[in-house]
Design a protein around this nucleic acid. Structure first.
Length: 787
DNA sequence: GTAGGGTTAG
């Protein structure tokens, strides 16, 4: 049988790899030089059945490959994500056999690998060499243009060229052109409405034959992307055919805007109209449930999917399960999330990243680390999830380490990764590292990134440099509510309550809507500055003006505000009028207010409640026993101490640290570990001598309220923050500020000592404790003793 | 042999 006959007989119906291989083997062994048609069929078959290496093998055997075989193989490489091999193949193709089709395929390959510039360049080259672009060329290159189009000019230029060459012949080109306008409209450099209007005009004026389902979807999704949900909805409602894709775009629009009810409503309508729900619908809806914290709804959707979807595609299984992992972790159901993850027959990077992020954000760092290690592949996002997760949960050192490891492995961190590294510096109070990162960021051009800017504001503030935070905030090209919140919080932490309020008022003037975080921040600003009237006012406007229902943490901040001002009966009123039972944060607020004002009676009540709710929290036992001690109720003191021992509650050891020349020095109470600690004690002795001359009396009352030392009788114990401050004075050049960090609240005696020290040595001392900042200058503290 | 639309992880 000759090859041609064989080809006709088998290859025409070729759909089995075994058959293909038989033919392939015959060609190789028979020594025939078969017709290109047959070779091409074979290559095509291998490509379609994902046997690209076979296809390549065969291809390499052809003495003079034709352009059809080349294009087939090139497209297969591109479809499997192997842009490098596709490009090599194209480059190796002689100019003499190239044609428009092969150029189109290569342009598409670039476009699919998100290299818009390469695609555009190739389009230009092809024209320069005399190849005439056809409608395929335009739809390909316009798709690529969407990746880079930030200028309206670009769109219009291509629009003209398409019209000039009469290429607006099919729905694909029309749609690609519309997509271009739509993605250009998202650029901050253009007037989004104007550009969307251009896209709409194209759509409205196109002959009806050109307007197919994808173009309807493009224009609807365009409005969604550019924030005009009303226009999108009008178009959707005006459609006679119900296309799931368009509905999905609309639903995701509602979800992104936080309009979850509208999203669920649309879902119900889709369902009742009998529109086939698919993985896109489910992912959007489940992500709505996860953003809104609607556990029962999300679980219901999950159950519905399991019940109704038979034989889901692999894509369906992947995307729906991926979003389910996120949903369950966000609802705090890590076990459920892990169950979904473990049951997935195939996992992709998104699945791994989602479960990783779940564990990191649940502060399950050990498990997160092992997931990170055993992941089959990692993306930039993986590293970023891990770095920012570590930072957000207080593991600053680990976060920075991972960031450096990432760079060592040759990965180029993106702006989010930098933001994570900066957040790590915020935790550590490492200004040196933070500033180094900042200069790298400027060099790399990441300084216009929103997340970097927001992280920088927090970093400078948490390192004690409010002014630098301010500079970042005012030089950021774009800001969002997170930036405003961060800057207001910066001012609040440093005791600039009035300035914080002024900034908040300005935020309102600039039509930025405050969110729940804004109110948390503004309430603690008022609390730190003793602005009771203002705080109450803002609390009231929350619901009345902005429709934000005060949550527990808002109430606890309000109560904190009232208690600090000594308004205990008002605080009690609020507690009793709350729509829920007071829980731990509320009692904590009460307790700390009582501590300041020596209100032992209420304080004991609060502490006893707190003891029941959070039996593992060390501070409560200590406060409670101290309060009983001041009343001389030694039996109670003994009871509380015994309870603490029996429950195995460990005290969080107090420690302070200071950065000197890019090195972090850590001190513990009565430290004997730091190599230079003897010199520190000696210098401290000298300082105390000088301080006494100015009237400093060591306040032994605080020894009783001692948060660090077990033995209350040891009146001479030296707190870590004192050691760190003294070390700073010894090591840090005159004129520079001393910045010390402490993991617990600052002790009262240290607080008064630092006022004297700042006067004796004439230096500015900044202490960041668990709650806020204290700036000691010339015998005064910025907190006005409101702490 | 080549083209255009919707989703999920920070």
């Amino acid at each position: 049988m000759d090859v041609r006959t064989m080809g006709n007989r088998y290859l025409a119906q070729l759909n089995q790899t075994s058959l293909a291989r038989a033919v392939h083997a015959h060609i190789l062994t028979s020594g025939f030089n078969p017709f290109p048609l047959i070779i091409n069929r074979l290559i095509d078959h291998y490509c379609k059945s994902s046997n690209i290496p076979y296809a390549r093998h065969l291809f390499d055997k052809i003495p003079k490959p034709d352009i059809v075989a080349t294009t087939t193989l090139l497209s297969a490489y591109s479809a499997s994500g192997n842009i490098k091999l596709a490009h090599q193949l194209f480059n190796a193709t002689p100019l003499t056999i190239r044609d428009t089709v092969s150029y189109n395929a290569m342009i598409t390959a670039f476009s699919h690998s998100h290299d818009g510039h390469a695609a555009l360049q190739l389009f230009v080259q092809m024209k320069r060499l005399g190849f005439v672009p056809d409608p395929f060329s335009f739809s390909s290159v316009l798709g690529a243009l969407s990746l880079i189009a930030d200028e309206e000019r670009h769109c219009q230029q291509f629009h003209c060229e398409v019209l000039k060459r009469g290429a607006l012949s099919g729905p694909s080109v029309l749609n690609a052109l519309m997509s271009c306008y739509v993605s250009c409209a998202s650029s901050p450099l253009v007037d989004s409405c104007l550009v969307m209007a251009a896209a709409r005009k194209l759509f409205d004026e196109a002959p009806h034959g050109l307007r197919d389902e994808p173009s309807w979807t493009t224009i609807i999704a365009g409005y969604v992307r550019n924030g005009d949900l009303v226009a999108a909805r009008e178009l959707l409602d005006g459609m006679t055919d119900h296309i799931a894709v368009a509905w999905n775009a609309m639903i995701s629009g509602y979800v992104h805007r936080g309009l979850y009810e509208a999203a669920f409503d649309l879902l119900r309508r889709m369902h009742s109209l009998g529109i086939q729900l698919d993985e896109y619908t489910y992912t959007s809806v489940i992500s709505a449930a996860s953003n809104a914290g609607l556990f029962y709804i999300g679980r219901q959707v999950h159950a519905y999917v399991l019940r109704t979807v038979v034989q889901p595609s692999q894509h369906f299984v992947l995307s729906v399960n991926n979003v389910l992992i996120t949903f369950y972790t966000r609802c705090g159901k890590l076990v459920e999330a892990k169950r979904v993850f473990d049951k997935m027959p195939v996992k992709d990077l998104v699945s791994w990243n989602a479960i990783l992020s779940g564990y990191v954000n649940a502060r399950r760092i050990e498990e997160a680390n092992s997931i990170f290690r055993e992941m089959p592949e990692r993306s930039l996002l993986t590293w970023t999830v891990m770095i920012s997760g570590l930072a957000q949960n207080g593991f600053g050192e680990e976060g920075l380490k991972l960031f450096n490891q990432m760079k060592l492995e040759g990965l180029e961190p993106c702006d989010y990764a930098y933001a994570g590294a900066i957040a790590s510096c915020s935790v550590l109070g490492s200004l040196d590292n933070g500033q180094q990162l900042h200069s790298q960021i400027i060099r790399l051009g990441h300084d216009s990134s929103l997340s970097v800017g927001n992280a920088l504001i927090t970093m400078y503030a948490r390192c004690g440099l409010v002014e630098a935070a301010d500079t970042v905030f005012f030089t950021m090209p774009y800001v969002d509510s997170v930036s405003w919140n961060a800057m207001i919080a910066a001012l609040a932490q440093h005791g600039h309550g009035v300035k914080a309020i002024q900034l908040y008022e300005q935020m309102l003037k600039e039509n930025i809507f405050p969110d729940r975080i804004t109110f948390l921040t503004i309430l603690s600003a008022c609390s730190h500055a003793g602005l009771v009237k203002e705080g109450r006012h803002y609390f009231d406007t929350m619901r009345a003006h902005y429709g934000i229902t005060p949550e527990e943490d808002h109430y606890s901040r309000l109560i904190d505000l009232l208690c600090r001002a000594g308004m205990f009966s008002e605080a009690k009123n609020v507690t009793e009028s709350m729509p829920f039972e007071p829980s731990a944060p509320i009692w904590e607020a009460l307790l700390s207010g009582c501590r300041i004002h020596g209100n032992t009676e209420l304080g004991i009540q609060a502490a006893e409640k707190l003891l029941k709710l959070m039996p593992q929290q060390d501070g409560t036992y200590i406060s409670l026993s101290n309060m009983y001690a001041t009343l001389g109720q030694w039996d109670e003191v003994a009871r509380v101490r015994k309870l603490m021992r029996e429950r195995g509650v460990k005290k969080e050891p107090g420690c302070s640290w200071i950065e000197v020349e890019n090195m972090v020095h850590v001190f513990l109470v009565d430290d004997a570990v730091h190599p230079e600690v003897h010199a520190v004690y000696k210098y401290l002795e000298h300082l105390v001598h000088e301080m006494r001359k100015l009237g400093y009396v060591p306040d032994t009352k605080y020894v009783l309220h001692d948060m660090e030392s077990e033995q209350k009788e040891n009146a001479l114990s030296t707190h870590s923050e004192k050691l760190a401050v003294v070390y700073g004075i010894m090591k840090i050049p005159l004129g520079a500020k001393i910045r010390v960090f402490k993991n617990l609240r600052i002790c009262g005696d240290c607080h008064s000592a630092f006022k004297f020290i700042s006067k004796v040595v004439d230096r500015e001392i900044i202490v960041r404790d668990r709650k806020r900042f204290h700036h000691f200058r010339n015998g005064e503290c910025s907190c006005g003793n409101y702490w």
